[in-house]
Design a protein around this nucleic acid. Structure first.
Lengths: 191, 191
DNA sequence: TCCACAAGTCTACAGTCGTATACTTCGTTC
DNA sequence: GAACGAAGTATACGACTGTAGACTTGTGGA
């Protein structure tokens, strides 16, 4: 362990997983090949299958990791609607180029097997997080609709590239979105 | 012209286009091959390229046709929010199995070239239609946000298959959505 | 020191993809 | 009725896909 770890299984696995998150988020499940992912991780293509069983196995773990990321929503129930709106506008800004789990979902949902994996992880992690932060959405459809609104905005603004959403003043966008989320999350006050 | 037209260029072209709408909507641009589309139209694969130049050319025309379909939104500005909510819940119902332009968009958006084609057609046809029916959304971001909400709901309920959205009472869903659209479309009254 | 096992790579296979070229078949018009 | 052009098909090519199997290389412990 003196010099750099050249043959470190855990590190290699982590590198592949990281490359997988990036590639699947950018290009979607069907838009990228295992050879490309392996090259980005600096390893041979077959290591993907060795560590994750298959391309689908890697995607399942990528979805798990991505959906567990809690930077999507805020933590304060009182300012939740405002926080979601602000973060959404900021992270979908033309300059921003990040690895949102919503991009992973949007770009991979066309594949039925990927869609099923995504559904399972969204319900287990993301919806659960919404319930946690905004308890009064539990038992209703509102948590899922919040996610639908966020996903739809990501889609139109970043994946499709709507010029209406990219040309409008971001303050206006944020106001529109905040009104929507305040409608959906009763506990979030206008401030 | 007495018997059935066996060698009718216009009819063949139309058959390929129809098969293209169905296939691209169901499986997305990258999820279906030209051979499969041609077989559904009852012709050889190369006719796709003869009539539409390429797979991408066929997709462009499919997008044009699909986005020009005006059954998505209602026509009465006063009841627009309610109509959109009702149609959205009905058409995303588990039993329903239709060819919504939103499904076409959601399942093909991962491909960058398809996304660009979709963007152009959405702005030219769908957004324009929203402006037409709800003039007070013009010049704002609201028409695009309406589309984002619709797309997000389609995504979560039909493409991903969210059990929250498929298990909830449809009346409740419709109420939630109507509130959202009434927020976005000022001219639509609660009734 | 050397060996056993883990870590990693190479090669190959069977399939699918979009599409270009060459071909055949049909309908129409003189 | 024959021929010309349009409508449609067959074949093939090169690139790419996921992954199985055999192989090589490195490293930690005895």
């Amino acid at each position: 362990m003196s010099s750099a770890h050249r043959r470190d299984a855990a590190a290699t696995r982590a590198a592949i997983l990281r490359a997988g998150v990036e590639a699947f988020t950018r290009y979607g499940f069907d838009g990228v090949g295992v050879r490309e992912i392996a090259q980005a991780a600096g390893v041979s293509a077959m290591l993907v299958n060795r560590y994750f069983g298959s391309k689908e196995g890697l995607f399942a773990e990528v979805a798990e990791v991505s959906m567990t990321d809690r930077t999507v929503l805020g933590d304060d129930p009182a300012t939740l609607a405002r926080d979601i709106a602000a973060a959404l506008v900021r992270r979908t800004s033309p300059a921003a180029d990040n690895l949102s789990p919503f991009l992973l979902m949007l770009r991979s949902a066309a594949n039925p097997r990927a869609a099923e994996i995504l559904r399972e992880n969204i319900e287990r992690h993301v919806e659960a997080h919404v319930y946690e932060v905004a308890p009064d959405t539990r038992g209703t459809d509102r948590a899922a609709v919040v996610l639908a609104v966020i996903a739809g905005f990501w889609l139109l603004r970043k994946v499709i590239g709507s010029s209406a959403l990219n040309g409008t003043d971001e303050k206006t966008l944020e106001t529109t979105l905040r009104q929507l989320f305040e409608t959906l999350i009763p506990s979030a006050t206008t401030g």
